[in-house]
Design a binder for these strands. Sequence first.
DNA 1: ACTTCATATGAAGTATTACTCATATAAACT
DNA 2: AGTTTATATGAGTAATACTTCATATGAAGT
Lengths: 106, 106
Amino acid sequence: MKKGLTTICHRFFSNLANPTRLATLEQLMTKPMSVGEIAAALGQEQSMISHNLQPLLACNFISIENQGKKHVYSINHETIDPIFKAIENHAEKFCPRGGKCLTGEK
Amino acid sequence: MKKGLTTICHRFFSNLANPTRLATLEQLMTKPMSVGEIAAALGQEQSMISHNLQPLLACNFISIENQGKKHVYSINHETIDPIFKAIENHAEKFCPRGGKCLTGEK
DNA sequence: ACTTCATATGAAGTATTACTCATATAAACT
DNA sequence: AGTTTATATGAGTAATACTTCATATGAAGT
């Protein structure tokens, strides 16, 4: 790990450490979607989704393409896929039956 | 991404989204260290380091081995290395000259 | 057993962050 | 131009998480 990467990592992880943003990414994993579609799929308010899309966009975890009044967001598979894969691997190997790591129990 | 992984991911990312914990991991990347050694290296209080080691341990990002009164922590390279590598790759390809993503500017 | 050294724990205050609601912008259609 | 639809923005409040300081535990040496 290069020196100074700590700062960068903090921004990355803070960005991803949010249930709404993670659920949004989970949706975008399947296909590009507009703000309204994401909101409907998650049962959340439009403004909440819009707010949460901004940090994801700022870090290029997603990209935007405006189609008329609809704004269609796509996931950056190149970045997101390997990270989620690494987490799945960790969960399997180091937290096989759930436990503290996954449930939050002490 | 498997359904339900959102919850797991949230715990993972929240755990890592903290400068003290990231700096601690950065230290442990080089070699196993005791609490006091980490605190000294980072110029932080012992209690702060100890507090922050607990969540890292609970998620098995690090492991502990007690040597007398010293508690020596080691990093889980299998999990941490690929994640940091993915972030470095993202930073290079999608945030080449810093920018919003890295600096936090709007 | 007492002292020292190393680490962990608890509680309280502070700071951060997220969500909600109201409103603004912006495009398409009449 | 006005209306509707889609998205974005702003401000205030609520919820969470972090740090600090004081104290507790626990091992090792005298």
